[in-house]
Design a protein around this nucleic acid. Sequence first.
DNA 1: TACAATATACGTATGCCGTACGTCATGGCA
DNA 2: TGCCATGACGTACGGCATACGTATATTGTA
Lengths: 238, 238
Amino acid sequence: MGATTRPAGRTRARVGLTRQRIVAAALDEIDAHGLHSLTMQGLARSLGAGTMSLYNHVRSKDDLLGAVSERLWAEIAALAPASDDPARWLESLAKAIRDTGRRHPNALNILAVGGVLPPPLLEVIAEQFDRSGGSEPDPRLVNGITTVAAFAIGWAVTEAAGLTPRATVAHETERQRIRRITRALPPETPDRLVDAAITVCAAEPEPMFSASVAAIIKGCGYEPASSRPGSKLAEPRP
Amino acid sequence: MGATTRPAGRTRARVGLTRQRIVAAALDEIDAHGLHSLTMQGLARSLGAGTMSLYNHVRSKDDLLGAVSERLWAEIAALAPASDDPARWLESLAKAIRDTGRRHPNALNILAVGGVLPPPLLEVIAEQFDRSGGSEPDPRLVNGITTVAAFAIGWAVTEAAGLTPRATVAHETERQRIRRITRALPPETPDRLVDAAITVCAAEPEPMFSASVAAIIKGCGYEPASSRPGSKLAEPRP
DNA sequence: TACAATATACGTATGCCGTACGTCATGGCA
DNA sequence: TGCCATGACGTACGGCATACGTATATTGTA
């Protein structure tokens, strides 16, 4: 990292190529034009550098993708700082994963390649363990991390796949939604199946997500969050 | 080419190249050597055909991957036939997704590319809607499908990422598990983080998975499922 | 039976991709 | 001042998906 300690005088680094800048540019490209269109040559061009210069900061393209993944997890961790209330922290973790998935739908495929316990997340987890006190971490918290993260990732993937209605398509009419769903289906899909698809996609995602997260957290042994707004999905009725 | 002996019968195609055979071979290759090593040329070679012959049955490589995805969903659907007990069916759906992910960990990335509501799954969903009766599908069931599927997919992805302990690595000792976890982490990861990772991965996955599925299903409004075969169903509605 | 139409198999060629390797410029340090 | 580690760069190579033209087996039709 000589870039930060560079002398402020007349001389500067050659091009200022840096792992961080490369990763940021890669994420920009993925967000803008999809994972397919991320190529080393195009990336170098967008940075005003020669192709092979990138390899001074990145071992391979896979390494680059891993770095992008880690960066995304860093975003997630920043959105879910440790809290004194473990259950509440789990909620914020779920929301952070889901929101980050919404912000970078094209990058979702690589979120898991670097493992689901990358250092940035581990940092927050360790901090949360400390906060929750005790010599041994609370098993409820341990279980909650795995299950909540799995659910949020799956939810984000499902959303990005395009069939679950997403709030990012905010002002979508019912007709538009049906168009979108049917377009994603093979042309000769029987009407029964199209009807089923429309029914499934007609559900409101927001309450579903938060209610499921709450249910999972409760299932881990935590008290149900009473002072929560919303989350009025069906509770077991008499 | 006269090299291949033609079947003397009255079969249809020349070499027997078929979309199904191609898809099956592609899945075999993915399972055996990973998604990276699936190439059109290698696939054709393994089928004893010329490369471009594949394109008579497959529009593009993406189309092929979509077909593989659909095939996987067909496996899932076959493992989760419609049931008279909706809550029980949701459980079997979760298990089917997770088991299929275990059987094809290398193919998990493409499970979602074709959308999460592919025809094979829609078929079962429609059937399940019919079974549950009523003119309108039960909203609990609609919510359950989305949330259970999202959780199971996320769980499978997490498992395939290699950090969550998986039962496929059955006879793993504690030491081996730690080795596996630490190997997946960057070499200079601080001890605190390694400890946190080990703690998270030390949890037993089996009860976590089924308990979370049960919690989600319950969160959708279904009665808590008692795991008895002679199920007196928890159907509260006429 | 003969022949036309069609579907399928195949070879070649093209352009893009990741990246190994060698070279050269830079600037900090002795 | 001279040295050398670091980083930027050009060239080259093998592998990839696939567009296009062509050959051949099968089927429908007369």
